[in-house]
Design a protein around this nucleic acid. Sequence first.
DNA 1: TTAAAAAAATGACTAATAGTCATAAAGTAA
DNA 2: TTACTTTATGACTATTAGTCATTTTTTTAA
Lengths: 211, 211
Amino acid sequence: MGTAERREREKIRRKNDIVDAAERIFFSKGLETATMDDVAAEAELSKGTLYLYFKSKEELYLAINERGFHILQKLFAAAISNEQSGLEKVRAIGRAYFEFAQKHADYFNAMLYYESRKMDVSEKNSCARACEQMGSETLKIVAQAIRIGIDDGSIRPGVHPFRTAVVLWGQSSGIVQVHSLKAKHLKEKHDVDPDEIMRLSLEMMARSLQK
Amino acid sequence: MGTAERREREKIRRKNDIVDAAERIFFSKGLETATMDDVAAEAELSKGTLYLYFKSKEELYLAINERGFHILQKLFAAAISNEQSGLEKVRAIGRAYFEFAQKHADYFNAMLYYESRKMDVSEKNSCARACEQMGSETLKIVAQAIRIGIDDGSIRPGVHPFRTAVVLWGQSSGIVQVHSLKAKHLKEKHDVDPDEIMRLSLEMMARSLQK
DNA sequence: TTAAAAAAATGACTAATAGTCATAAAGTAA
DNA sequence: TTACTTTATGACTATTAGTCATTTTTTTAA
């Protein structure tokens, strides 16, 4: 009889429902302000039960991060397939990342929150592993696009695909962070349009791959 | 009589001593793990007195950040004056930033911790203002170096100095963050030398300014 | 159907820690 | 010496992550 299997399915569904509730709470109250009691109430569960499914607040964060990474990966896959040349693929990935940060700002901020913290390797949480794995895959996607660009001549030869992918990823993260965290400041104090900064950054990154 | 003045001086010295103690505690225990009781003990003060000088843990963090910004600004000033062409000045600023992140990793991490958090404008703390002010000045230094580069021909005309400065700043932040937070991961999982990533990033940023 | 066993759920409880405040000590001025 | 001001204290409160003994529900098997 499939009792165990059914229970397994229900457990997964339940975890999903909890993450749904956690998102509603975390995204509306802010990651730090929201409490586990809030999440338990929103999920219509006792606190003890909540901890039965997620053994810490961090694990809940990470489950949300994992969802964010999934969205991002899909956007990247779509971006790549829509373009011909390698350079255009790389540009499209950059645009997709910027789009993600804007249209899925909640996920982006949640991911930013955790990415900017040193995570010990010892924390071998399954979500953490999944996120790390997806990060690596993303890098490989960019490196592959660069390789295609070198072959089709849209990217100058001599660039090291993987290392360059890491650089582009880091640079993009920084710009998107600036856009997300300093948009108001840039606009009000320096009369600079944050979207223009993102476009300019994309252009400059593309330029550094050409010639 | 200069009683009030002397008291003012002593208050500033005391605040400094507290920040010294806070650094020892925060830098050794980690920003989140360290407690205000720890800091009070290290400063040989009661907790109540500590709160007389800094009204929150965040204000202490910010006082540390302010010190970090000062160091960074001095490094930038030195970097600029050591180079001739505008492009070389910009490169030197980039190198100085990377150097700061490595040689003053504690300050860098403290700054990163707060920079990556949305700070409300309502929090009109004096240290927060000072940090913001220094951030703006730093951007102006970069923009000025770009202007010099356009004039002396080492940077292509047509770049908008201030916007480009913002882009370079954002990109550098991202790369330095990657270097700081993912160094181990890059080395172990991808066999990539983090320092090489920083050098490559500098080279690519410089390339995007030339031609 | 029922009793024993297993799994899931509960919420009162603990521990940790940021921040407060009534009280006391030290310093200043007359 | 006395009245007043500033500085210092640490016991106390409030909040919240995480635990655990107990209860409720579900499953299994006779």
